[in-house]
Structures are given as structure tokens and as C-alpha cells.
Design a protein around this nucleic acid. Structure first.
Lengths: 229, 229
DNA sequence: CGTACCGTTGAGGTGAGTCAAAGTAAGTGG
DNA sequence: CCACTTACTTTGACTCACCTCAACGGTACG
């Protein structure tokens, strides 16, 4: 049937991929360079950073195991809009343009799948929430913790939440559109209030539900006020 | 050839579309409602607003004549992430899901075209620049003027720039992640400095190149400082 | 055991938010 | 066409979260 990915096509897709290993700090692709294919992170964490039109360097997306990256510029047929930097030792597999293009052209089904990935990309929305909203940094930081929890093997028992941050304070600052000093101060506040405990990159949240509630309640508070009540 | 849009397919696509007219203030689609198809603005302006996870209402995209909208949620097969509100009397044509789905499944070529549209969507990036960056509101406002100029029939003679803002001050505030009062103050500043003149919704920029230069120079200034010079 | 980065702390400044109140434009209905 | 309602805009005084700057402590690594 037209539009379906044949077994042969799938086989080609799988065979053509190339695996690489990157060390902490390595760039996997670079802003303004040509997009040569699709990247899929198999293990480790990658941070997408970009220098915007104003020359500010910001981070806008953290990529974890199992996630695709580089697809936006690839399908737009434009240079990469960001630089992908490995935060840890990272295994990445790469699908070259020639193969992907051929399969997309042959198969509406595969193209449809990519359409979904692209359309569901939460990156821009998250970035806006983390950096754009006018909520206090403290709330945005807690929200980031919740997002990170979902992409980390958080050891959760009895509402407890414990995981390793894959990010430095500077990276968190870049993600939140803030300065590293402010991150330090927020972390101190959260510890003083007993909301979370930090040892280097290890975070422990005694009551994870409480954290979520705090984030949401502040949101609710805001929206009530916006409604004029 | 597999993947090509047949004449019959194109015909179907064109015939199935439905035209509607909306008045200022009408919603064309609504956040959290199901995405039923693709919308294309033929004339007029539409603002995409959304209530984020924190309950803040923000605007993140202005749609002008000839632009598609609603495609992200449509292809993601998720509820609309925003509400589309007509800012002026607006002609919109609508392509129902059944037709689009069928053509995408049949044609890798058409799907590829949608992939490009989706991947090139500047909305999220612009929104981040306008709302997310830590630049002074004044600079972000000027940047917005430059973006608006591109989507308006700006009557440009001898470096002069003159057009109607399709947005209220409140809408501009929502787009920039600021308060209406702050917009008023920025506008006053720009008038005092002779950079732009506002009469209601009419903007006149005596020296458009100067405006662009001001925006860029501030960016450059910032990045120099970031580089430690 | 330096060198270099990352992280922390404190003091001080400010851009933009908040609040409140008055002015203006834009519809609506008689 | 005018009164009336409603929404948008402007102004000024005040406040504060976060930035900036500068200096110091910690930790990794050759």
C-alpha cells in the first residue's frame, strides 16, 4: 500500500545509522552549521544552547535518553539553530540525510510520524515557561525540578524524590534565563524552607507532591488575581 | 510516482476547503478543544493566545494573510495549545482533518512540505526572543516593531517606515511578556527620543535603519560584555 | 600544587511590576 | 445623534526581584 514503510525500508533505516560516543563538553552539532541528518540520544544528557539574535547565549532544551534532536533544522533544511553539547558521556546515533529523505519521500506513514514528533516537541513551550513567564525565579526553578524529575531515574519512595541533576548551576541559570548567583540564592532559600536538599548535584525532595502543589498553587494564585478576584 | 500529489488529490484539497469570516474579537479555535483541521488566514490578523501551566495568559504569535495556523496541534493530534482570536475582520479558510489526513498518508511529498512548514515555524523562536530574553523592554519592543513591519504593508519611502499596528497596547504587552503600563512608558520614551511617533495605532519611524541599528547594537553591546570585554 | 573553572556571599542599583485613579476611545441602544 | 456602558490607555508613586560587580572558597585535574 502506498505510504507504508516497507520492511526493506526499515532495514535500510536501521542499518544506515552510525553510533558515536561523546565526552562531557563535546559538541555534537554546532549552531549555524549545516544539518546533515537526525540524531538520537541513546544514553547520557545533551543540552541545546543557542546564541540568539541579540547575542545572548541561552539554553533552551535538555535532551535525555531515547530522544531525537536536530530534527527541526533538518526538516527545515536550514542551518542548526543551536549547538548540542554533551553534559555527560553520551551515546548518540546518527541517521544521514540521504536515507531519511528517501524514506520520507517514499512513505507518507513515516513522514506522518515525523510530523507528530515535530508537532509534539515540547521544547519551545517548556522554554517559554521556564524563561519567559514573569513568575518568580523560585517557582520557575521548582518547575524545572519537576521537568527534570521526569527525565531522570528518580528514586521515588513514599513521596520522596531523589536524583542527580545533569546540569551545572550555570546551565540551570541559562535554562531559566537567570544568573548563576540567583540560582545559588534560590537553592539556599529552598533548603531553608525544607523544600529540597542539595548536595552538589544531588537533589532530595522530602515531599514531591508538596513541591508540585507549591508550583501549582502559585499558578492558581496568579490566575485568580489576573481574573480580578 | 509514489509520494507525488496527484492532480485529483490537489483538486480534492482545494474543493474541500471552507471559507469563513470572523469579526474582531471572535475566536477561530479555542485552547484545549480538539483540533479539527488546518486553518489558513486569507486576510486580516489573528493573535494566538494561551493560558500556560501557571495560569498566565500570554500571546505568542501574530498570524497575517497567507499564513497557516493550528497545524501544530493538528499534526500532534492533541488539543489546541492556544486560542486564535481575530484582531480584525478576518477571512479564514479551513481544511478538514479527513482530507488532510488522507492526502498526507498518500503523498510523502505533501507530508514533506508540511514538515518544512512545521520545522520552519519561527513562532517559538520569536516568542522566546520577545518574551524570554533579559534585554530591556525597550529593545524588545523595537524588535517587535521590526517583526511587525515585515508582516504589514509598510509604506516605506526614503528609509521612512509607516504602518498600522494590528495590536492593542494590551496585546503588545502580552506578546512581550510585559504590562500595558510599561508599554505606554516605552512608547513615550521612544517618542521623546525621536525614534518613533505613535498616533493611536499608527506608527511612524523616521529612520527605519536607525531602528534596526539600535536593536542590533544593543545586542552586540551585550554579547561583548558577555564575552568579558 | 598550581591553574582554571565552578560555586557562594554580600552590597548596592534598577527595570519593570503593582496599585490606584483619571482620561479617552469605542460600541450600544434609545 | 446623543447618552451610556464598557474596554482600553495613560500617569504617577511606590516596591521589589533580580541583576551587577567584586571578592573569596571549593573542587577537579594535569
Amino acid at each position: 500500500m502506498a505510504g507504508e514503510l516497507t520492511a526493506a525500508g526499515f532495514d535500510l533505516f536501521e542499518r544506515a545509522r552510525k553510533r558515536s560516543i561523546y565526552r562531557r563538553g563535546d559538541s555534537i552539532f554546532t549552531q549555524d552549521k549545516k544539518a546533515r541528518g537526525l540524531y538520537c540520544v541513546q544514553s547520557g544528557y545533551v543540552l541545546l544552547r543557542r546564541v540568539d539574535a541579540f547575542g545572548n547565549e541561552t539554553a533552551f532544551r535538555l535532551i535525555g535518553p531515547g530522544e531525537l534532536m536536530g530534527y527541526r533544522s533538518f526538516f527545515a533544511d536550514e542551518p542548526h539553530a543551536s549547538t548540542a553539547q554533551a553534559l555527560t558521556r553520551t551515546h548518540v546515533c546518527f541517521h544521514p540525510k540521504t536515507v531519511v529523505d528517501r524514506l520520507v519521500a517514499d512513505s507518507g506513514q513515516l513522514a506522518g510520524r515525523f510530523l507528530r514528533v515535530l508537532a509534539r516537541d515540547p521544547g519551545p513551550a517548556d522554554a517559554l515557561l521556564l524563561r519567559g513567564s514573569k513568575l518568580p525565579l523560585r517557582i520557575r526553578f521548582m518547575f524545572m525540578l519537576l521537568l527534570l524529575k521526569e527525565r531522570t531515574n528518580s528514586v521515588g519512595v513514599d513521596g520522596n524524590m531523589n536524583f542527580q541533576l545533569p546540569l551545572t548551576r550555570q546551565d540551570m541559570a541559562a535554562l531559566l534565563g537567570a544568573r548563576p548567583e540567583s540560582i545559588t540564592r534560590v537553592i539556599r532559600e529552598l533548603e531553608e524552607d525544607g523544600i529540597a536538599i542539595f548536595h552538589g548535584r544531588e537533589v532530595t525532595v522530602p515531599d514531591a507532591e508538596n513541591l508540585a502543589a507549591l508550583v501549582k498553587s502559585d499558578g492558581a494564585f496568579r490566575s485568580l488575581r489576573a481574573a480580578g478576584e
